[in-house]
Design a protein around this nucleic acid. Structure first.
Length: 954
DNA sequence: GTTCTCACG
DNA sequence: GACGTACGTGAGAACC
């Protein structure tokens, strides 16, 4: 495959033939390409690419490919590319603001304008431009002139301003989607036939071109009016008769504006023709010049398609879509994957059923100094799991399985396979598993360490340990998953036996303990074997990738820390939780009855489908938006809007939803998770799932316990300390914004943090030019939103939605923000660039976070990836700060003689359980450690709170 | 199994 | 000049 085109070069040039208007070769057919329009559109639609000189060329590539296809296809007897020559035209005399306030084109686009003109020349295609006229006028003029000579015309553009030209014999072609735009398509867009498009545009106006139109009238209304009256002029003459008072007033008051607008949007087919029609005749390009251009840009696939062939040294000059594509290719076929021939086979493996054999394996592992190790259990929950067997691997292909508790559990009569006594085997293994001289290599070590730490499974503290999952995560977070099977396929080219294949699925699933020993061995020993092989492959790469320190000092040390936190769990006041649940249940019943009464019939309140039908069909309320599944949306935004209009049903459904969520997820969900042995809940912290380096929490998720509402916060009250103890919460204050001030080096923000000022007030004062002491609530609120927006890679639209203000106002605020903090804009651009070039970004501490979608073909996904790229260093940097604190804290507390222990991490917060008398001292240690783990250009800040419950500790 | 909704940072 | 619209998670219920 060609490496220079987007994988979807197809999207540009290889659309299905039937979608493309084909002219009989004998007919006269003019292709008019809207060159200026194309470049903007292609720039945003095509993935980033650079030529060998490093200049962005994605739009140039798309353009060159498209035109060369037109030439190759002999589609069109005539062809020309039309450009805008200047910014001012006769329209500015009519209306000075026309196309004013157009933002500057993005910097990556600017150099492409000249290159597109160069490409046009190289392709031997006529270039048309004329001072004082827009490309659209020239296109209109040429279309009319060509038609007069009996030819047909295709306008290559999707610009709605050109749609007025569509008629039999003149059609448009969307150059990106390769879709023809004919009368039907125009009518679909404007609600009127092409000839009436100018009338609709004159009324609706066009904010992008600054065509004023009539305020309050959009395309929908305009189309309706034009249908009724026939034209803008006829409408204005009859404006008095309009029934709707607002609409009538608007039309009367903006009569002149509407007429001017029509002149602005109507294209001038009388524009001069800078080149004679004959000059537009399609002719083959001058080969040497074209080849030179294509080579200079590195457009290898186009060279090949045009039959220029491969020249020596060409590989070095091809355009690169950043290194991402290369990396992705490498991931698909790993260069370091061992070749299949000569590779040690994955089995057969030995089943160990006597102590002598076990001792031989232990000795072998000790002399090897490193051993792949894995446990098999009967549960995914490490704190309930019983050890069923374990496996060891000492070299590629050399591994064994040691069954310990196979057989039907609880069935004394059932025959059990011959196997070692678990206690005796574990005692024999203990020296190996705790031997400082033998490295134990595990996949997801935390799980196995918890299993073995429990007394019934030997009570063994496995050490030292390497974890292949974390080694992979340290280098490739966000790039792919880090489960063993996935890593094995990726790096070893080997698909291990799936667990489901061994135990079966659904009804037929048997516990691992009941799997026959030969199958159990094939599966379990293979896991240890794969783990050891992955380790041999991946561990050396840590240093090469610059990830060794991150792995050694953070991820690897986190394993024991999290093991202890998970095993500690947090106490839940079960009686209080049950009372809360009963109260919620009672309220839900009453609320449902009330809702049925209001709706006039019973319905399932929890069904968005039924609710949507009641609101928007039966009650015929406005605001019914259908999602892609065709169902009405009934989310908070929709219901809040209705509630604000006084729709009682909407308000009450929102109330019901809140309580229902609290009951099902947090009351019932939590009750089911209380460990009967200690009355505590033990979460699982996932170390390698988040793309940003964060932890996540599951079964139960203790990182999303309610706090924002009064009702929700009640649930925090059920998380309590043991008698004689208190919970201590230590929160990093504004950590992500501090990282922003640090990385972008913003003097004002640095100063505000240094002085301990309120950061949102400072931002408000800076961007709204307020007296620092006199920032009002609303300004602070807006500044807070924009501060959050910044670290999320926001758009003007996003900010507008959240502030409930018009997008242009949001735009103004954002512009003010960037004007005030130019360092932040530069930083953002730099991050996006970094992501495009490398496929990853780095946190301020150097961790790589991969953003694979940055090279996506779909503009939408790519835009999402850009926002993720902006956010990743902040979110990931904050994650790293708190992880560094977590690996230091247990030691620091011990050294201070304190008995408190860490229980939970919630991204920027740590929760401890401490003896009452030690609360203050523990808080001091926590603050000192947490604030000193990173030296930034701003201080880190930690807020402390203590209480009997988690609610009180806040 | 997927979609919608909503809880947290 | 056009697409959709703020980052990252996990859980429960409804729906297909």
């Amino acid at each position: 495959m060609a490496t220079d085109g987007p994988p979807g070069g197809a999207a540009v040039a290889e659309a299905p033939a039937e979608a493309v208007p084909v002219t009989p070769p004998e007919g006269k057919h003019l292709i008019l390409v809207d060159g200026s329009g194309y470049i903007f559109r292609a720039f945003h639609a095509l993935p980033p690419m650079n030529n060998p000189a490093g200049v962005p060329v994605n739009a140039v590539f798309g353009f060159t490919q498209m035109i060369s296809r037109f030439l190759l296809d002999h589609r069109g007897s005539h062809i020309a590319v039309v450009f805008d020559a200047s910014r001012t035209t006769f329209r500015n005399e009519l209306y000075p603001d026309y196309k004013a306030h157009r933002p500057e084109p993005p910097p990556e686009l600017v150099p492409q304008f000249a290159l597109i003109r160069e490409a046009t020349d190289a392709l031997g295609v006529c270039k048309i431009e004329q001072e004082g006229f827009e490309a659209d006028d020239l296109i209109a003029a040429y279309a009319r002139a060509f038609e007069a000579e009996g030819g047909r015309v295709t306008i290559v553009s999707s610009d709605k301003d050109l749609m007025q030209l569509v008629r039999p014999g003149v059609e448009m072609l969307d150059p990106i989607k390769q879709k023809p735009i004919r009368e039907a398509e125009v009518e679909e867009k404007f609600g009127v036939p092409p000839a009436k498009v100018v009338d609709v545009q004159a009324l609706a106006g066009d904010p992008t071109d600054n065509v004023p139109g009539v305020p309050g009238i959009g395309v929908k209304t305009a189309a309706q009016l034009i249908h009724e009256y026939g034209s803008v002029e006829a409408l204005l003459d009859n404006a008095e008769k309009i029934k709707q008072p607002k609409r009538r007033e608007a039309l009367l008051a903006n009569r002149e504006q509407a007429l001017v607008s029509k002149k602005l949007v109507a294209l001038d087919a009388d524009a001069p023709l800078p080149a004679a029609i004959e000059a537009l005749e399609a002719r083959p390009p001058e080969r040497a010049g074209l080849e030179g251009f294509l080579r200079a840009q590195g457009f290898r696939s186009i060279l090949a398609r045009l039959g220029f062939g491969e020249a020596a040294g060409d590989a070095g000059t091809r355009a690169r879509r950043g290194a991402v594509a290369a990396h992705q290719a490498a991931a698909a076929v790993p260069a370091d994957a061992p070749r299949a021939p000569g590779e040690a086979p994955y089995g057969p493996y030995e089943t160990v059923t006597d102590m002598a054999a076990l001792r031989r394996w232990i000795a072998e592992a000790e002399s090897a100094g490193v051993v792949g190790f894995d446990t098999e259990t009967d549960s995914l929950d490490a704190l309930r799991a019983s050890l069923v067997g374990l496996s060891l691997a000492t070299a590629p292909g050399r591994a064994c399985y040691v069954p310990l508790r196979h057989g039907k559990a609880g069935d004394m009569l059932a025959e059990k396979p011959t196997q070692l006594d678990p206690a005796e085997a574990l005692e024999a293994l203990r020296p190996l598993l705790t031997d400082p001289g033998t490295l134990k290599v595990l996949q997801n070590a935390k799980y196995d360490m918890e299993v073995l730490a429990r007394p019934e499974n030997g009570g063994i503290a496995v050490d030292p340990v390497d974890d292949t999952m974390l080694i992979s995560y340290s280098m490739e977070a966000g790039r792919h998953g880090h489960g063993m099977d996935e890593l094995s396929v990726l790096h070893l080219g080997h698909k291990p036996i799936p667990y489901d294949e061994v135990t079966g699925t659904g009804r037929g699933r048997v516990p691992f303990a009941e799997v026959p020993l030969d199958r159990a061995t094939a599966y379990a020993a293979e896991d240890a074997d794969v783990t050891l092989r992955l380790h041999a492959l991946l561990r050396p790469r840590l240093r090469e990738e610059g990830a060794l320190a991150l792995y050694e000092e953070v991820e690897r040390r986190m394993v024991a820390v999290l093991r202890d936190m998970e095993m500690a769990g947090i106490r839940v006041d079960e009686a209080e939780l049950r009372r809360t649940g009963e109260e919620f249940a009672g309220r839900l019943v009453a609320m449902e009855a009330e809702l049925h009464r209001i709706a006039g019939r019973p319905f399932a309140v929890g069904s968005p489908k039924q609710l949507g039908e009641i609101l928007f069909d039966e009650m015929a309320l406005p605001g019914g938006k259908r999602g892609k599944s065709g169902a009405y949306s009934t989310d908070v935004f929709v219901l809040e809007e209705l509630a604000a209009q006084g729709v009682e049903l909407a308000r009450k459904v929102l109330d019901w939803r809140q309580i229902s969520k609290l009951k099902s997820t947090y009351v019932d969900g939590l009750l089911a998770q209380i460990d009967p042995n200690d009355g505590r809940v033990h979460t699982n912290f996932q170390m390698a799932v988040a793309s940003t380096g964060r932890l996540s929490s599951t079964d139960p998720n203790l990182q999303n316990i309610p706090i924002r509402t009064e009702e929700g916060a009640r649930l925090r009250r059920v998380f309590v300390a043991e008698p004689g103890h208190l919970l201590l919460a230590a929160d990093y204050s504004q950590i992500e914004l501090r990282l922003l001030a640090h990385v972008a080096d913003v003097p004002s923000l640095r100063e505000a943090f240094a002085r301990g000022e309120d950061i949102h007030s400072r931002t408000a004062a800076d961007i709204f030019r307020l007296d620092p002491g006199k920032v009002d609530r609303e300004s602070r609120r807006r500044a807070k939103m924009i501060n959050f927006g910044i670290i999320y890679g926001m758009s003007a639209f996003g900010l507008a939605t959240r502030l409930a203000i018009p997008p242009n106002e949001a735009r103004t605020i954002i512009d003010a923000y960037f004007a005030q903090y130019p360092g932040i804009r530069d930083y953002m651009e730099g991050v996006k660039e970094e992501a495009r070039i490398h496929g990853f970004v780095r946190t301020p501490f150097g961790r790589k976070l991969w953003i694979p979608d940055i090279a996506a073909r779909e503009a939408q996904r790519r835009a999402g990836a850009e926002r993720a790229a902006i956010n990743a260093p902040f979110q990931g940097g904050a994650a790293e700060v708190i992880k560094r604190a977590m690996v230091r804290l247990p030691r620091a507390l011990r050294d201070a003689g304190l008995k408190g222990r860490m229980l939970l991490q919630v991204h920027d917060e740590l929760v401890f359980e401490v003896p009452e008398a030690e609360a203050e001292a523990t808080g001091g240690v926590a603050r000192r450690v947490m604030e000193s783990v990173a030296e930034l250009r701003v201080p880190l800040g930690v807020e402390l709170g203590t209480g009997r419950s988690w609610a009180e500790a806040h």
